[in-house]
């Protein structure tokens, strides 16, 4: 379930330092999230789409992610044009659609996808562990990083534990039906999953203590920033500034 399909690859984005990518992603996504200008949002979205293209994601997986996110924006398109109000309306298939509602739905869609592209290109191309270490290096509180990394790991364990139990049940001829037996079995499965993952977490903690863990995760690989990293960071920050400029001082004749 939780593998990191986007993190495998050998493009520039996979090789860039995770710290640089975190900063760039933060800058670009803030731009996109805060802007009210359609031009700025669209430019940003195109820019991040271009970055994403350079990171050469698996098209099938990418399609799936985009669909998942846009499932939510779909609801905006289904509601905003009818509820937003405003002065101007257009009619489509004998429906009255608010122009401002359409505009807002479009803006939010572009922003959402832009941020998605940005995260897929910059963050999903690093394994979460590297992002954790990078955030720590960037001064995030260590406790938060722990929570991030260990919840991630624990999720994986819980899922594995559940899968194992489910397989064991299936191997002994368990077929779910609409019966008391099925519900009771699922009850046991969920209960056992929780107990067993709790126990495993405990044992892993013990394993860490046995190997001298004392509250600090020390990354093995953290080479210094290369010239490439610095150049990339510079370009990204410059672009974010430009984007911010476009959204703060829009040309008068654009939306």
């Amino acid at each position: 379930m939780i593998d990191e399909p986007f993190a495998v690859g050998s493009t520039l984005f996979h090789r860039l330092d995770a710290r640089v990518k975190c900063i760039a992603a933060a800058a670009l996504s803030l731009d996109l999230a805060l802007t009210g200008s359609f031009t700025a949002a669209l430019t940003g979205c195109l820019l991040t789409a271009f970055l994403l293209l350079l990171s050469r994601p698996d098209p099938k997986l990418l399609g799936k992610r985009i669909l998942t996110v846009n499932f939510f924006t779909l609801f905006l398109w289904l509601t905003l044009p009818f509820t937003y109000g405003g002065a101007e309306y257009t009619s489509f298939l004998s429906l009255q659609l608010s122009l401002e509602g359409l505009g807002t739905a479009a803006l939010i869609t572009v922003k959402t996808n832009g941020i998605l592209f940005c995260f897929l290109a910059l963050l999903a191309t690093s394994p979460l562990v590297n992002l954790g270490h990078a955030l720590e290096k960037l001064g995030m509180p260590r406790k938060l990083i722990f929570i991030l990394l260990f919840s991630y790991r624990q999720l994986f364990i819980i899922y594995q534990e559940y899968e194992r139990l489910q397989r064991a049940a299936a191997l002994r001829g368990f077929v779910p039906t609409n019966s008391m037996h099925t519900y009771r079995t699922y009850g046991h499965l969920f209960g056992m999953t929780l107990v067993k993952s709790w126990k495993r977490a405990e044992r892993i903690h013990q394993a860490m203590l046995l190997r001298g863990f004392h509250g600090k995760l020390i990354p093995l690989n953290q080479p210094p920033l290369t010239g490439k990293d610095q150049l990339f960071l510079f370009i990204m920050l410059l672009l974010s500034l430009l984007l911010a400029g476009v959204s703060l001082f829009p040309c008068p004749h654009t939306l």
């Binding site: 790991r153 495993r200 394993a207 860490m208 863990f213 093995l220």
Partner: peptide, 29 residues
């Protein structure tokens, strides 16, 4: 060495897991 190795390995890659102890004991990366 645990009876069940699943409980003993917790880092993503083998190298990171093997290096975990030495790092905690103060070795440089």
């Amino acid at each position: 060495l645990f009876q069940n190795s699943d409980d003993q390995l917790f880092s993503p890659t083998v190298l990171e897991d093997v290096a975990f102890g030495p790092l905690n004991m103060g070795a440089s990366p």
